[in-house]
């Protein structure tokens, strides 16, 4: 497959909006999921730390 330049590549034969609109949404949604996964994990880690600290102080 030869595109003959970046302009032709980005325009996707006139379907650029549809093709790139699809791929951009995949990137956006995956980025949101990764961010959500990490922030929830951070919260869980902090919760574990709090629990351990409380267990130590009452022991």
């Amino acid at each position: 497959m030869t595109w003959g330049g970046w302009d032709a590549f980005w325009s996707m034969g006139g379907y650029g909006l549809y093709v790139w609109g699809s791929y951009a949404m995949v990137v956006a949604v995956v980025a949101i999921e990764i961010w959500q996964l990490k922030s929830r994990r951070r919260a869980a880690d902090n919760e574990v730390k709090r629990e351990s600290a409380r267990a130590r102080s009452t022991a």
């Binding site: 996707m12 034969g13 006139g14 379907y15 549809y18 093709v19 699809s22 791929y23």
Partner: peptide
């Protein structure tokens, strides 16, 4: 045409 390239993620 090129619109079919959506298939690779759809």
């Amino acid at each position: 045409g090129e619109s079919y390239r959506i298939i690779f993620i759809h």
